[in-house]
Computed example of a mutant assay.
Amino acid sequence: MRLAALVLLLPVALSGAVAPADPSWMWPVEGPRVVQRPFLAPPSPYGIGHRGVDLAAVADGAEVYAVTSGVVHFAGIVVDRPVITIRTGQILATVEPVTPLVAQGDVVLAGQVIGTLEPGHCSQPCVHLGVRVAGEYVSPLLYLGGLQRAVLLPLE
């Protein structure tokens, strides 16, 4: 039987079809864990896409937590939004719009309050979380858990 290069996402109900969370990562805001807008990889480095996930928050002004331990790589304004980026090895995790309570070079631990959520990114309170590994955007759900695993199925 020949396997195809066809990749399908199976329903979450299938046992083992959902990737578990990385124990060193945590959700950046409290409340129900709802993805308001999923990751959508761009077809090329400069193509359109959604280079992260929008995660529901309880309210604007909510505390935002470091998703992983590392060093604050950037804390400031990008265009018109407050942004915080944490580096851990080859991984950069960015949250926005978040007014920083940390500064570049600070060492942070997963779960530490790093800022407060500002309004304006979504129609309802949300935080945008983006993750880059060695410069390439990946779905943050690879680390937070819940990403459906790709499964190869036979052509016939």
Rank of each mutant, 00 (worst) to 15 (best):
A56H: 11
L101I: 01
R81C: 03
G111F: 06
E156G: 14
I77K: 10
G70Q: 07
Y137M: 03
D80M: 09
G31H: 10
Q104A: 13
H128E: 00
A21F: 12
L141R: 13
E156L: 08
Y137F: 15
R132E: 11
L142P: 00
C122R: 09
V95C: 06
A134T: 01
E96A: 15
I77G: 03
Q112H: 04
G135F: 11
D22P: 11
Y65A: 02
G111R: 08
Q104P: 03
T68R: 15
A134Q: 09
V71L: 05
D106M: 09
Q124Y: 06
W25M: 03
P154T: 05
L55M: 11
L144E: 00
L109N: 10
S24M: 07
Q90R: 11
V34W: 10
P154H: 02
I77M: 13
A59K: 14
I77L: 14
S24F: 07
H128T: 08
L109V: 07
G89F: 11
V64D: 09
P23S: 12
V72H: 13
I84V: 15
L144S: 01
S69D: 02
Q104I: 02
R33Q: 12
M26F: 00
V53L: 12
V64K: 15
V108G: 08
R132S: 05
E136P: 04
T88F: 03
Q148S: 08
A41W: 01
W25V: 02
Y46N: 04
G145T: 06
W25F: 13
P32V: 01
D60N: 15
V78A: 13
A75M: 08
P45F: 12
D80V: 10
D54R: 15
V113W: 08
L155R: 13
G70C: 11
L101G: 08
L144A: 02
L155W: 08
